[in-house]
Design a protein around this nucleic acid. Structure first.
Lengths: 146, 146
DNA sequence: TGACGAGCATCAGAGGTCTGATTAGTCTCT
DNA sequence: AGAGACTAATCAGACCTCTGATGCTCGTCA
């Protein structure tokens, strides 16, 4: 089976192009794409835990720890122990973080808008539907055991 | 604009699921997905240069250097200077590399087959077409300025 | 009360990915 | 011959991502 026939190649290319576009979009705000995603969720739900944040952003808690470490070093978020559950840490954007988010969000949304503009609503529905089925096929039909 | 509406979320999830499935598929052979991709191309075109390999695998030359370093450390590839162009290094799979590739390829191809089986040929064409248009939109319509 | 399971946070380590910069060989055109 | 453009390979550094392992806190239940 050649590379071109594989759905994986097409998906990889698209994901890579999208990643590149978004990286270029959020870079002027001093953010990376994962940092932008984390800030985005944090802005909507301040005080959320790192573990919950990881679930929303589709990454592991360990990965989120890394992202949050960098965000905190840049003083874009603040982390304080939860008043009741002391081992839970509440995370919130700082004013600087909110500013960076706004700046990044405008441009990132622009990428999505531009993308949406290139397709009809029906085409977008078809695409989303097909992608959902790919995901479903991959997750409900494990390839682990023979 | 919410996360769920963004095409990026769908693409990220699918790419992530596919990555997970392929990782699980090639792991028993002792390979990572990028290593598998590199070996796959190398097996078809032995003696190819690292730069060319990078282009085929859709990664930067620097990234390919990293991948090749690990493959060479595992003695799955051999690297020798090109007889004419001394600054070019020819890379070839070792017998062990070819064996690992065969083992990984069977399972990786299984993922693709299973995926293809979940769709009609027409649906696959539609999906490939839409993905190509996404890619085209992203690359021909830069979001860099303004 | 005290043990246990669940969830949170994080360290350790490996690997991949990029941007930016450097070094060196090849080719072409004057 | 020599200048300049191009390509190959690689180092340096930053970030993200995963798996595996650890420690801590909380709630539950015997």
């Amino acid at each position: 089976m050649s590379f071109d026939q594989r759905l994986g190649s097409h998906l990889k290319r698209v994901e890579q192009d999208l990643q590149a576009a978004k990286t270029a979009a959020v870079r002027p705000a001093g953010l990376t794409v994962p940092q932008y995603a984390a800030l985005f969720v944090l802005d909507e739900q301040p005080g959320i835990s790192g573990a919950e944040l990881a679930r929303r952003c589709l990454v592991t808690p360990q990965t989120m720890t890394t992202i949050l470490r960098n965000l905190e070093a840049a003083e874009l978020i603040e982390r304080t122990p939860h008043p009741l559950h002391r081992h839970v840490i509440e995370t919130r954007p700082t004013p600087a973080g909110r500013k960076a988010l706004d700046q990044a969000d405008e441009r990132a949304t622009g990428v999505e808008r531009r993308l949406a503009a290139a397709f009809t609503d029906e085409e977008l529905d078809v695409l989303r539907g097909l992608l959902a089925r790919v995901s479903e096929t991959l997750t409900t039909d494990p390839i682990l055991d023979r």
